[in-house]
Design a protein around this nucleic acid. Structure first.
Lengths: 184, 184
DNA sequence: TTAAAAATAGAAAGGTCGTTCTATATAGTT
DNA sequence: AACTATATAGAACGACCTTTCTATTTTTAA
């Protein structure tokens, strides 16, 4: 098994476990065991647990955006509603239990600045995405709509933990339509 | 210093620290030190750390509802908007950094059933509150509105972590009004 | 005032954590 | 075939965790 597959296995297992049980809830021992890797192989690729967390977050962000992009470019309805739908599908498939980035902010604020920044950047990117979309569509107050849609997505993520992805998506999309209808 | 004040000090300090750094991020040693209490005093009142977590959650829930009730009964505008405003004020004053109950669900799901249940009950109570409010006000689909408002509040809580309580409240209340206007 | 109850400091047990170290084995390249 | 880079298992480290124990002091109430 080549170097890169070992590293990939570590990142994949770490992401799953961190998401499932939280960053502090998972020890390196468990990651190592489930990735079928030796301790020093992990430390060969990542200088510390926190650096592993960083790379997990970066990878997850990439996957999130490529997921969103590929969903949106194939869609027919309003780009706002599409983005909300795409996010809901992401939740259903990969994020049924809260948001990893928000979790990272809460866990590492005041502890590891680098991790906190990576997580916060993911959120500002979401805000910028909606803002740009609003500008392109000549919405009156792009910043307002962007913030409201981001708030909507954050709420959907939390609701998924409480009532499941399907119902959360239903309410979320209904709200997005009302909101969009009201501003356009 | 009487028995009950020691217990209160422990609960108060524990709530602050758990909220600030997460349940796993705070050790009993720190709680004991900041509450000016001996180790055995803590174990005299709480049989374990998890039981302490339980009581902290119960106390926080009581405070949340009495805060909401006292805010709402003095209000003049629509009870839905009032509830959202009250929640926003609670966020600004006591919950600027994510939601403790959601956090408890994520941290203790599959680990401590009792804690998970207490946290989940808090959320279903919120849903029932809105549902009853919707029924009293003869809304067409009470369950739908209740879920949408709960989603809105959850989103506001997350947004508070990202952009601060004031701006989050602004967007949240604007959305609540649109939503309410649309259903009534 | 005296007896019971509660709180005290601090050590100790038993565990897990992240990280480092050692010494051996495996793979890939020339 | 030999050399270099990587991966291996597993021990060891010091720090921290929750929980228990001990022995002493303080508070409460009859």
């Amino acid at each position: 098994m080549s170097r890169s597959t070992k590293k990939d296995a570590l990142l994949q297992v770490a992401e799953r476990l961190f998401y499932e049980h939280g960053f502090r809830g998972v020890g390196l021992k468990q990651i190592i065991r489930e990735a079928n890797v030796a301790t020093m192989t992990l430390y060969n690729h990542f200088p510390s647990k926190n650096k592993l967390v960083e790379e997990v977050l970066k990878r997850r962000e990439e996957r999130y955006w490529s997921y969103l992009d590929s969903y949106i470019e194939r869609g027919l309805s309003s780009p706002f509603v599409l983005a909300v739908e795409a996010h809901c599908r992401w939740l259903k498939e990969h994020s049924y239990k809260g948001d990893m980035f928000l979790r990272a902010i809460e866990d590492y604020a005041g502890i590891d600045e680098e991790i906190e920044n990576i997580a916060r950047e993911h959120k500002t990117r979401l805000l910028h995405y909606f803002q740009q979309l609003a500008q392109e569509n000549r919405v009156n107050n792009p910043m307002d709509l962007a913030n409201q849609l981001t708030l909507l997505l954050e709420g959907t993520t939390s609701m998924t933990t409480l009532i499941g992805a399907d119902k959360a998506a239903e309410y979320s999309i209904a709200m997005a339509k009302v909101l969009f209808q009201h501003t356009s």
